[in-house]
Structures are given as C-alpha cells and as structure tokens.
Nucleic acid binder design. Structure first.
Lengths: 351, 351
DNA sequence: CTGTTAGCGCCTTCAA
DNA sequence: TTGAAGGCGCTAACAG
C-alpha cells in the first residue's frame, strides 16, 4: 500500500505514537510513558514538557499496545445474549455495563439470536480478542464450549441458566419460587382449575416454572390435570391460539398462569377476545399493564440485578485468577409478585 | 467432568502463543502464522502438523497482537448511548451489532446516562482502545469532542441528533414530519384546540417536534396558542401533572399531542384519571397500547433501522479512510402513524 | 530522576 | 516452500 521511503517512517495519517511525543518534547519515550502513567518520579519540568507536547499533538496512548505489553489484559468484558432487543437482556446489559465501568472495563456485546453455533463463534471470537471474562445468556443446554478449561482459564459466568456439565458461576432467577407463589395467589383467590401455558420442558426455565406451578397445586391438594397443561411454541400468535383452545374445553379453567411474557400477552388477548372473566397471572413483568383494561398479576424480578450480580461474580473471578479456583457459585435472584389493576374504570372512547 | 487429575492442565493456564505451537509442531512460528491465515504456500504436511498442534494445545490466535502488527485495526466499533435500558436504544444497538457482525466487527458499548462528561470520557476511552469508529447518541448539543479531526480521523457517526458544529455523518428521525402528520391527523378528526406536551426547546428533537406541531396548525389556519403549549421536565410524573393542569384551564384542549413516549404515557394517565374524552397522540411507539382501555395514536419509526443506517455510514467511512473525506451526510429515517384502538370492548374485571 | 535494552505476540519483508 | 530478522506501540527491568 504505502510507498516506503528509505530511512523515513511511512507517510500515514495515523495517530501519533509515544516516539512522536518524545521527539517533540525532546525526551525519551520512557519519560512520556511514565508521565502518562502518573509515575511520581518524573520532574515537574519534564512532566510539563511532555504534557505540552501531548496537547499539541493531541496524543492518546494506545491501550491495545499497552495491554499487550503489560500482560494481555484487554480491559474488556464479553457479554453474549440471545436478543439484545429484548428489554430483559438490554437491562441486564445495562447492569453489566455499569459494574464494568466502575472497574474501568468496557463491555463487548454479541447477539446470538438464540443460535447455538453463533454462540460458539462469539465465544471463540471474544476469547481471541482476549477479553478478561465472559458473561453468557446461553442459547441452549449445551454448554461444553463454555468450559473455562477449554478456554485456558478464561472466566465465564452464565446468566439466566444454570451451568450444565461445566464448572462455572451462574446467576439465575427464582423461577420455581416465583411460579409457585403466583400460582398460590391464584389458588388463594379461590381458583381450583388453573391452566398452564408453558415453554418447552427442554428449557431449564420452562421446567422450573412448571415445577413451581405443580408444587403450588399439590400443596393445596389440587391434582395436576394434564388437560389444563399446555406447551406453547415460541412463535408469535401461538399463545393466543393455545389459550383460546384451552378456554373452549369442557369445564375450562377459571384462571391461567403463563410461563413467560409472550405467553402472558397472548393469553391476555385471548381472554379479552372472548370477553371471558378468566383470571390471569404470568411470569415476567408486563410494563404498563396498569393501563390495560383488565387486571393481571405478574412475577417480576430485577433484571438489572441479574446483570450486576453476574458482573460481580465475573470480576471476582478475574481478580482471583491464579488462586486455586473456588468451586462454582450459583446466585439466585429473588422474584416478587405484582398486581396490575386498571387505575380507573374504562372510559368512553373519544370520537 | 471437571475432576482434577494430576498431569492435567492447571486451573489457570496462560494462553499458548504461536511459539508454543511452533515448538510443539517443530516448525518455525512463521509457518504457524501462515497456516492460520490460510496462506496457500504451506505444504499439506506442514499444515497438518501445525493444525494438529493447534488442536492439542487448544491454541487461539491473539487478535490483539495481530491487530497491533497489521495496522492497528482493532475490529471494534464503539457505540455510545444515553440509556441502554431504554428499548429505543437497545434496538438501535441491536441494529448496529447485526451490521457490525456482518463485517466481522464486534461492538463495544458505553452508557452515558445522559451525562456529557461521561460521554467525553467514553469517547476518549474508545479512541484509546483504537476502535475503528464510533456511533454516538449524544447526551447534549455540545459535540466538540466528537470532531474526527481532534480524534486523528477516527470516523464518528451521530444517531438521533444532527451534528452541531462538527463535520460528521448523522442519522436522524423525521421528527418534524412525524409530529406534523400526527397533528394533522388530530385536526382531520375535527380537533381545533390541541394541547402540546413538549420537551425542552434546547433539545434538538424537542424543537423539531414543536416545529412540526405548529406547522400542522398553521397549515390548517389554526393559531398557535401559548396557553396550550407546555414544556415537560424529564421527571417521572411530570407529564401527568402538566396534563392535568392543561385540561383544567378554561376552554381546555379536546386533544393532546405529546412529544415523546414518557409524555404520552403521562398524558394518558391524566386523561384516564379525569375520565375525559380527550384524544391523544404522541411521538414514539407505545408497545401494547392496543391493550389499553382507550385509543391512542403514535408516531413510530424503525429504531433498529437507525442503528443499521448509522453502522452503514460508519462502515463506509472506515472503508474509505484515507480518501479525501467526502462531506458529511445526513440520513433521515421516516416515521409513520399508527393507531392503537382497544381490540375489544372493556370487559368486566374478574374479581 | 532519566535513559537504554529487551520483548509482549504477531506479521511484513527479505533471504535461502 | 520455509525460516530469520525486524518492528507495530508500549512498558518491565535494569542501568546511569
């Protein structure tokens, strides 16, 4: 590309280097390095000369080269999520970012779209970029590629899913407890026939939420009826259709518990459509549900907290890199119940 | 799995280098380098030997060092937003990420929380990390620190705000047109007294949306009455209070246009609270508003598209880095009107 | 206090 | 086709 002039540095528009600053200030590169690092053993005059040149040349130290020399720490945290567009994960990301920032680290994001191959690819890429650690919201149950041993000790923390077969820290949500208490609340309201709109059992969250639901029923002495259990495909419109079907069986449920946000909304539409008086509760918050025409109850949790806790675990591992690794920790973020009821009676539609 | 056997790799192994691989394969580091880069002038036997060693040692090339040698490209795109927790910006981030990924680049995020100092800090940090370019959702109107000239030619693209005083590309939303057409729609419905819930005039979007509102009124021959114009502080609850006040004046408006998401929701609450039949329109989408008890109209736009367009502009600049810089481009993302009306009549609350 | 030497991990250039 | 020398920008470790 660039023509090479013998004895001269190639003509480039690139950033100045320490050598440039050193030359401008007529000192050695080391003095520039020390000054910029705040080394106290630099005389005030030198420091002033250097800083002046830095100002003039608008010099900015190359952190990449610096990291290479000082031991490979890139000052980067990897964050791999299934869908950044989903508010749950963007809030999680915000939590990670805020904690990383407090420690002078930046966050590199990767979006898998739920694709396991893409996840592997991203882990590999980030490892090659020498991030200091990775937080992953895994796309599936295969976590083999997340084993730190296979990544030369790169710390890994899972979020939302517990590790399966790998020795890593994880932050999960109290899926079981949340589902259980939401179901209990429905029972306390007098419901005895409660429908369940689940995720696949293959997903960990799906299994846990179902387990919590069943546990509540059993504690109340209510038999779990297969006829009231549904598994909803993760497709737009599926939850609504399934709910409509569920409400049309003989002896239909008087209440429904939906295992996630999407199912809750689908169920809500189906119930509203029928004009039914079916009670509805669901896992995951539904922002603004107090403006809905009908009340719903939800299991909420602090999404940002999941990110912050994951970051805390990760930073801890990074700091303790070298220690005989403590055994994996599992942190559970608590859930709480929230009742949304219309703030005021439905009013007439304008026009 | 995970049992510790003597002779196995230690807990915290430092990554192997090319030299290690070379030693293991009994070749020179250059051969490893060439093999890994897919240089065709490597004999099949050599290649096989190298790849075998790579496999055994679980070697992963250090992209940081590689970038340093090959010219400083970090393969990173900087993305600085005001609030990643806000779905608008997380969708924008998703758009940026997807385009970056298509080009083999990763995205480093930074959250300013609307703080200009933090923004400067992040720009500086990312420049030091030698990202290939930066996309910024600016926190204020001072963009001096974003001038590429001051960043040694680092490409910068603004999102959501046009550049003020700096020569950079930008992607903005059609704030004027969107506000204008939403207001026109209210007028077409017969409204002649329309309230306006604005942002500060100091913000570009605030000024533009007000301008669009006024333009629609003027075109319809309706005078702009100061008594119907409000500026809402960006504080929770402010919009609702202001709307309540606005609806209690003598000769109150029959419709309200809110300049952003928060104002729209505040106005909605205030209107619902009074049981008023005031029509409501607002800038920014309100997801799930079709489940609300009363209808609203919103100005929507593709947030992801803003991110994708910004990334496109940035990638274009990065590719053409060296060319005599073309003059700044300004891309406007179009808006559209969306009417949310309750899908079905309000039903009885199920106890 | 300041400068020199050497090398982080990799790749460009040139020689064999 | 392979290897040796040198350097990207920076900083430990050692002079002076």
């Amino acid at each position: 590309m660039g023509s090479i002039t013998p004895g001269m540095s190639p003509e480039r528009t690139s950033s100045p280097t320490m050598r440039d600053v050193a030359a401008h200030a007529e000192v050695s590169p080391m003095t520039v390095s020390r000054t910029l690092r705040g080394d106290p053993r630099v005389s005030p005059e030198m420091r002033a000369r250097v800083l002046a040149s830095v100002e003039v040349l608008r010099y900015r130290r190359n952190d990449v080269a610096r990291g290479l020399r000082t031991g490979g720490s890139s000052g980067l945290l990897g964050l791999i999520v299934t869908n950044l567009g989903n508010p749950f994960y963007s809030e999680l990301a915000l939590g990670v970012e805020s904690l990383a920032s407090e420690h002078g680290l930046r966050v590199v994001i990767g979006n898998t779209g739920g694709d396991l191959d893409r996840e592997r690819q991203l882990v590999d890429d980030m490892a090659s970029r020498r991030v200091d650690g990775i937080i992953v919201v895994p796309a599936g149950n295969d976590h083999a590629h997340l084993e730190p041993a296979g990544l030369h000790g790169l710390p890994v923390v899972l979020a939302t899913h517990p590790p399966s077969g790998v020795d890593v820290d994880a932050v999960i949500v109290d899926d079981f407890g949340g589902s259980r208490s939401a179901t209990c609340a429905l029972i306390a309201q007098g419901h005895r026939r409660i429908g369940f709109l689940g995720l696949g059992r293959s997903m960990w969250t799906g299994a846990e939420r179902l387990r919590g639901f069943c546990s509540a029923l059993e504690d109340a002495g209510i038999p779990v009826e297969d006829a009231l259990l549904r598994s909803v495909a993760p497709v737009a419109g599926a939850a609504e259709a399934v709910t409509t079907e569920l409400l049309s069986i003989a002896d239909p449920p008087t209440a429904v518990f939906a295992a996630n946000n999407r199912n809750t909304l689908g169920a809500y539409r189906a119930i509203a459509e029928r004009g039914a008086a079916t009670a509805l509760a669901g896992f995951d918050d539904v922002p603004l549900a107090d403006l809905f025409a009908a009340p719903i109850s939800v299991v909420t949790y602090d999404t940002g907290e999941v990110g912050r806790r994951a970051a805390t675990l990760l930073l801890d591992r990074i700091a303790g890199a070298g220690q005989p690794s403590a055994h994996p920790r599992l942190v559970t973020v608590p859930t709480s119940l929230k009742d949304y009821r219309p703030a005021c009676g439905p009013q007439a539609a304008p026009v």
